[in-house]
């Protein structure tokens, strides 16, 4: 089975950050493979190791983002596609989805996999946007995948009150949760091998698009950033267990009146 995983290079959200005049500034320029996408790569690798097939990855971004394609190749993907857009600033989920839709129209695959959301914006839209544009069956927030008889992908997804087990005929699209697996750390051998693996560059024009048409597909914009409003701390109680429980019961019953 052929998997093509859409991956994104994102800022390291765990690095310290500041807001200055409504603008976001990160303490480091460290860019990483989106963690949810890493889970999608890992799952595709595990399934093709078990059942045969190939894993390719596709990324939209500047030349610098190629390091993230190399990371996925070092994990074990066979080939990378780099859709070169030097300045992605201001592109929203709709714009990314329109580029990837055009890519998949020219480069069909069996299973499109991607992270359930991007860890910088947490939007979680692009997957179902691409599936809808390509008229593919899809499932979001997958926590487990397996292949059933070569013609369908069985997806376990985390729903609101339980887990839903779906069979998707191929071709299909799936978005992956990071609860699915622990992505492998590339081995030294994997890193060396990744340097010889092919990375095909596509321009927007190759896909029948242009930066202008992509910018026209943008529907939302980020105006500014602000601090999270902090919750006010309440009462901190110390003492032995009996004193603590008795004080808490008094507060819950007489002050908060919730019990």
């Amino acid at each position: 089975m052929k998997f093509t995983v859409c991956i994104k290079q994102v800022p390291d959200v765990y690095a310290p950050l500041q807001i200055k005049n409504g603008e976001l500034s990160m303490d480091t320029d460290r860019m990483v493979l989106n963690a949810y996408d890493a889970s999608a790569v890992e799952e595709a690798l595990v399934l093709t190791e078990q059942h045969g097939g190939d894993v390719e990855v596709v990324l939209i971004g500047p030349d610098k983002a190629k390091e993230t394609i190399r990371k996925a190749l070092a994990m074990g993907a066979a080939k990378g596609h780099h859709i070169h857009v030097e300045d992605t600033h201001g592109l929203d989920s709709a714009a990314y989805a329109s580029i990837l839709t055009a890519f998949f129209e020219k480069n069909p695959t069996e299973v499109i996999a991607t992270g359930k959301q991007s860890q910088d914006t947490d939007s979680g839209l692009a997957g179902s946007m691409i599936a809808a544009s390509l008229n593919l069956p899809y499932a979001a927030n997958a926590v487990g995948l397996h292949i059933d008889g070569g013609s369908s992908l069985v997806v376990k997804r985390q729903g609101d009150t339980g887990q839903e087990m779906l069979a998707l005929p191929i071709p299909c699209l799936v978005t992956c949760s990071n609860d699915m697996n622990n992505p492998r750390i590339p081995s030294l051998k994997g890193i060396m091998a990744s340097k010889k693996k092919p990375v095909e560059t596509h321009t927007l024009e190759d896909l029948g698009l242009s930066l202008a048409t992509v910018r026209d597909s943008v529907k939302t914009s980020t105006i500014s950033y602000q601090e999270m409003p902090a919750r006010e701390a309440g009462k901190k109680l110390e003492g032995d267990a009996e004193e603590l429980v008795s004080s808490l019961m008094n507060l819950l019953q007489n002050e908060a009146k919730v019990i």
């Binding site: 947490d122 979680g124 729903g159």
Partner: peptide, 21 residues
């Protein structure tokens, strides 16, 4: 989880702009 599963598809099919979550 139910609406997250469909919001992007609705946006793509209607041409609408989506602001999730």
């Amino acid at each position: 989880e139910g609406t997250k599963d469909v919001l992007g598809a609705l946006a793509a099919k209607t041409g609408g702009a989506a602001l999730p979550d």
